[in-house]
């Protein structure tokens, strides 16, 4: 089940997505984190953030959920001082440090701090958060801005930089190419799809933030299509596929579309043991499909 993500070797392709595993402490209560391929830690900003007002979660029937958390996190200094060292006490595998910002200087600052003060294997740069104003997704919806963030981050770190892309664009390949041309070592896609629910009795949005990011199995076909498009547009660039993955078969499908590894997001919220169950099911599914090595199926479709 071993996969390569650029120069980083993962024991399997399953990674809990940023924002769905905190900094590992809670998940550690019920599963051994060391079974995971990697961990993508909670999106980290320069300063501590509470995020958006509640309610910031809304269900979408069987197909998923909306969130408008808005990058709640303790700030990069606390993450360096407390969260990452605490994670290291219980987990020895690769850490994918997810960082976010509100301007290019923020992104560079946080990446530099994380680069210098932690042993994170990969920096995952979130230019796709739909839930914050003045930043986040604004950088992921313009090829020029995405390239600027990529360049600024690459200038301050020697770690592999994976840009996390937004699906809320007309042509994701243009953004992806801009990031790769600016030096991105890899790409992670997709972040959540901007959505909305209305409480028809109260005649008001369910989310206090009005709009939020849609995740869950409903976005899987969108994620798959975008991963496939980007893998064709950026050959040789490793991709972390993300969006609506619920089971081992979905991991295989995402890898066939072009992903080298797969992040599991909303499924962790529905089923705290989702990653564990997917990792356990993967060998059986590989055997059934006569897949000897996962590397053999990456981008074959």
């Amino acid at each position: 089940m071993v996969v390569q993500l650029g120069h980083i070797t993962l024991k399997n392709p399953v990674i809990p997505a940023s924002g769905t595993c905190g900094f590992g402490q809670e998940m550690h209560e019920w599963l051994d984190l060391n079974i995971l391929g990697a961990i993508a830690t909670k999106g980290t900003t320069r300063l501590p953030r509470y995020g958006n007002p509640v309610p910031r979660i809304a269900e979408c029937g069987a197909t998923g959920m909306l969130n408008a958390v808005g990058l709640q996190n303790p700030g990069v200094e606390e993450v360096i001082r407390h969260e990452i060292p605490a994670l290291r006490q219980i987990y020895q595998g690769p850490i994918i440090a997810n960082v976010s910002g509100f301007n290019i200087e923020d992104y560079a600052y946080v990446c530099e701090r994380v680069d210098k003060e932690t042993d994170a294997a990969i920096l995952e740069v979130n230019i796709s958060c739909p839930n914050v104003h003045n930043g986040g997704m604004a950088f992921g919806t313009s090829p020029k801005a995405a390239a600027e963030v990529t360049r600024a981050v690459k200038a301050v770190t020697t770690k592999p930089v994976f840009m996390k892309l937004s699906p809320n664009v007309t042509d994701i390949t243009a953004i992806a190419r801009a990031c790769v041309e600016a030096g991105a070592d890899g790409l992670c896609l997709i972040n959540t799809v901007l959505g909305m629910r209305i409480d028809i009795r109260r005649r008001k949005p369910v989310l206090a933030n009005r709009y939020g990011g849609y995740s869950g199995p409903g976005i899987f076909p969108i994620a798959l299509r975008m991963v496939n498009q980007v893998s064709k547009a950026c050959p040789g660039t490793p991709i972390i596929g993300c969006g609506g993955v619920q089971r081992a078969e979905d991991v295989i499908e995402m890898m066939m579309a072009g992903a080298s590894a797969v992040e599991i997001g909303a499924a962790n919220l529905q089923n705290p043991n989702a990653c564990k169950q997917i990792i356990e099911q993967l060998p059986e599914v590989m055997q059934e499909l006569q897949i000897d090595h996962l590397r053999d199926i990456i981008g074959i479709v």
Binding site: G22, E26, V54, I57, N67, Q72, L269
Partner: peptide, 17 residues
């Protein structure tokens, strides 16, 4: 009471100040 995502502390959807 608050609308929750996970119920187990990982999504921070139900945080209050």
């Amino acid at each position: 009471e608050e609308r929750m995502g996970c119920g187990v502390g990982i999504c921070v959807g139900c945080s209050i100040e």
